[in-house]
Structures are given as C-alpha cells and as structure tokens.
Design a protein around this nucleic acid. Structure first.
Length: 286
DNA sequence: GCTGTAACCTGTCGGC
DNA sequence: TGCCGACAGGTTACAG
C-alpha cells in the first residue's frame, strides 16, 4: 500500500481539485470494503462541501462542512483518482491504463463535474465517516505514535518507545503505535541508511543509534515525497501517474544486488520477519 | 500483556 | 499456452 509518502503525495495532488468543492452525487458500487460502508453515508456526503485535506499516518482526511470527516485508508492496493469529466471511453483516464473500472468502489461526483474515484482491487482499504471534533479519540487514531515528519517526534521519545519493545527492530517500526506511517518498504530503506540490522532487538538500541535511525527515516520519507512515492504494482498518483522513488531503493526488492552504501561491498539479502520480506545488507547493517 | 501468525481479497509473475 | 502456487505496499483477530 501506499505508505506515508504515497498518501501525502495523493493528498497534495487531490487538494487543488477537491478543496472548496461540493459533492453533488455519491455512487457506492461496492459497499463491502474492509468495513462495510453504511447506507446513510450517501445522504451524509451529498451536498457537503470539502474543506482542507489532511493526513494522519497512512490515513487521508477529508473534512466536510457538516462537522464530519471522511477518513480514507487505501489498504494495500487502493487508489484515489481524479477524473476531469464523466466518460466511458476506454483509456480516457489520463495515464492510468492499468485501472480496472470493476474495482471503482466509490465515486464522488463534484458539482464541478469532476469525479473522485476510489479504486481498490484487493478491498483491504476502507472509508469511515466520523465526527470531526472527536477524531483524536477515534480508535483508528487514539493509539497512533508520532508523525515522523512532525515537530512532536523526537529521538528521545522514539528511544523510550523502543525500550518497551522486545521484538526485532523491523517489527517494532512497523508497529504504528511506536511511530506512525511507516510500512515495509520505508522501514527496510531507513534501517539500511542507519546501518541497523532489522534483527536487532528494539530495546537494545542506544540513544545515538535511535538519533541516526530517526534521521534516516526522515530522509527517506522526504526524498520519497519529492519523488511522488514508490510505484511497485498498484500505486498510482491522483492523476494516474507513477511515483519514482523505487529507482532510489537501496535494499527493497534488491536481493542479490550490491549494497549501495558508500564503501560497503556487501550484498543485499532477503529474510522473512513476521510474514513480511525484509531486505538488508548483513555487512554494514549491525 | 506481549508477540507472532494467519486471514482478509485479488492480481501478477514465475515455474512447470 | 495454460495452470498452479507463491507473493504482494496493511491491519487485526486470535492463539500461544
């Protein structure tokens, strides 16, 4: 799925087309997403005006003028796409010729005529409509760790959180309660840049190692946002275009290739941790 | 209470 | 060429 950089890229791309626009029509083609969409959602959305788009971790937030916020999670394969005007012509959707319309589960038609399409083949994603003033208490957000790119994320705080974890570092960083927004790709990349093994037990890291780790996490995420995210299979930007950060991967999906860290002659290995692939260099990551 | 695993669903890719 | 199994960016329920 879209991890933090992909969701942020989508947010920035959608904002000019959505903010200040009213929703004229809601089409629920397939309400049985990960969590079933309530039938009342259609009525609650139609006629509402969209405010400034936000993001928390991997969640896209669409506030409405009715004191409610549409919470969108893209799961593993979800896409949010803007289509300029309604058309059934094949291939008319910008560059995104890979999208199958059978997976267009939710369509918001704006008064401007543009359509916001939620497409998700694997249906691991979901949408929730919640009261805006109680979002922080919502179960989706209440336990989330700090935003790695935010002002409230500090090495000391991350160090304290990791001290409580007896799991391998890789698993600890995937835990959204420790730090929010990281997924498999960017954890692998950040650990390589910080020269830390994914197998290190989280509570054995010294503060100076956590400082290096946090700096690496931030560098990776910022570079990925500039590149428009990473496209492996499903991810597309809001206009159907690809992300390009996958060309800058140092370890992810590079098993058997040379490590790209300076002066390291190691080779990238792959191992399975908690059912997920970890890519790392055993020579320079300790 | 914490941790690891399996399951959710569908598409893609590689091997046979 | 076609079939089948493995695997995939996330999250969560459940067993140990």
């Amino acid at each position: 799925m879209p991890e933090l950089p992909e969701v942020e890229t989508i947010r920035r791309g959608l904002a000019p087309a959505l903010e200040g626009q009213s929703i004229a029509k809601v089409t629920l083609n397939r309400p049985d997403l990960r969590f079933p969409l309530p039938k009342a959602m259609k009525k609650r959305l139609e006629g509402a005006m969209i405010g400034a788009l936000g993001r928390r971790a991997k969640y896209l937030l669409m506030p409405l003028d009715r004191a409610e916020t549409l919470i969108i999670h893209l799961g593993m394969s979800g896409r949010m796409l803007i289509e300029a005007e309604e058309t059934d012509q094949p291939g008319a959707f910008h560059h995104d010729i890979t999208r199958l319309k059978q997976h267009d589960h939710v369509i918001l038609t704006l008064k401007s005529g543009a359509r916001l399409i939620y497409n998700d083949p694997r249906r691991f994603g979901f949408m929730l409509l919640e009261k805006t003033d109680s979002l922080d208490e919502h179960p989706a957000f209440a336990g989330l760790g700090p935003e790695p790119l935010g002002n409230h994320c500090h090495a000391q705080g991350l160090h304290d959180a990791l001290l409580l974890k007896k799991t391998p570092l890789k698993s600890a960083l995937l835990d959204q309660r420790v730090i929010a927004g990281l997924g498999n790709i960017y954890v692998c990349e950040a650990l390589n840049r910080a020269f830390l093994s994914p197998f290190r037990i989280a509570n054995t890291l010294a503060l100076h190692e956590v400082e290096a780790l946090l700096a690496a996490i931030r560098a990776v995420l910022e570079a990925a946002i500039i590149a428009g995210g990473s496209t492996l299979r499903d991810y597309r930007r809001e206009d159907g275009a690809l992300g390009y950060f996958q060309h800058d991967f140092r370890v992810y999906d590079r098993e058997g290739h040379a490590c790209r860290n300076l002066d390291c002659k190691g080779v990238i290995s792959r191992a399975v941790q908690a059912g997920r692939s970890s890519f790392f260099c055993a020579t320079c990551q300790r």
